[in-house]
Write a protein that binds this DNA or RNA. Structure first.
Lengths: 128, 128
DNA sequence: TTGATACACATACATATGTAGTAGTATTAA
DNA sequence: TTAATACTACTACATATGTATGTGTATCAA
C-alpha cells in the first residue's frame, strides 16, 4: 500500500508507463529524447528497482523481453511528492502557493479551478 | 548565486538559522526536539557541508565555538524547492494545486490571497 | 594549574540514486 | 544452421546524504 518514495528517474519512468501503457525496457528507453537518453542498462536497473519497490511488475513476455506494467497509481505517487514538499514547509500551503505564483506557472484559471474544487470538498465534508 | 540543492536535513538547519539568527553548532543541535535529536557531530557534518555549498558561513567565535550565519536566502532556497517539484510535473501547477487541496492544507483564504497576488503580478507585468 | 568538558576536524560507513559495463542466453534473419 | 543481435541478470562505481566515531585541542571551573 504505502508506496515508497520514488526518485526523479524512477518517476520519469513511471510517467512513461502511466501514459503509454505496458512497455518493455527498450521501449521505455526509446521514449527518452535521442539527445540525453540514458543507456539501456540504466533504464533496466531503474526498472528493476521499481520492481523491488513494488511499483511495477512483469505481466508477460514478448520474445524474451519482459513487458512491465505500472502497479503504483499515478495519483498516489504524485500525492506523495506534494506531501513530501509540504512537510518541508511544515504543512503550510501558503508559501508553496506564493512560489507557484512567482514561478509564473499558476494561472487565474488554475486558481478558479482550485477554488471550485475546494468548495466542493468543503461541501462533501459538511454533509458527512 | 545559484544556490545548490539542499537536502532535507540541510534545509531543517537553514530554517533554524533563518528563524533564530546566528548560532553555534551546539545551539542548532539543541533546537531539535529532545526526542529524535541528531548527534552533535551529525549537525556538525551537515553544517560543514552547508558551508561547502556556500549556504552558511562563520561570522565569529565565542570561546572556541564558531558561530554560523545563513548566507543563502530563505526565499531563494524555498523557491528552488518548489521549482524542483514543479519540474516533476512538467511545469504544470494545476496538479500540484489539486494535491494541495486534497491534502486539506489549502484554505479558501490561501486561495483568495493567491488570487490577489496573482492579479497584482499580472498588473505589474501589464504596466511593464 | 590541572582535570573535566566542549569543540574542531578528519574519517568512516550504510543507503539511495544515477550511471553503465559484462557475461551469458535467447531470438531471429540470412 | 549459424552468425548477428537483443535481452536478462549481475556487478560495479561515483556522488549525495544521514549518521556517527575518534583524536586532539581549547576552555573553564575548582
Amino acid at each position: 500500500m504505502t508506496l515508497p518514495r520514488l526518485s526523479k528517474l524512477e518517476l520519469r519512468i513511471m510517467r512513461i508507463l502511466w501514459k503509454q501503457g505496458d512497455l518493455s525496457i527498450r521501449e521505455v528507453q526509446e521514449t527518452f529524447p535521442r539527445r540525453n537518453r540514458p543507456a539501456y542498462t540504466t533504464i533496466q536497473t531503474t526498472i528493476y528497482r521499481l520492481e523491488g519497490k513494488g511499483a511495477v511488475e512483469r505481466i508477460r513476455k514478448i520474445g524474451n523481453a519482459h513487458i512491465f506494467t505500472a502497479v503504483a497509481s499515478r495519483s498516489e505517487a504524485e500525492r506523495r511528492l506534494v506531501d513530501d514538499l509540504l512537510s518541508l514547509f511544515d504543512g503550510h500551503s501558503q508559501p508553496v502557493m506564493s512560489y507557484l505564483i512567482e514561478s509564473g506557472s499558476l494561472t487565474l484559471d488554475d486558481i478558479k479551478e482550485a477554488e471550485a474544487a475546494l468548495r466542493k470538498a468543503a461541501e462533501r465534508k459538511a454533509r458527512k
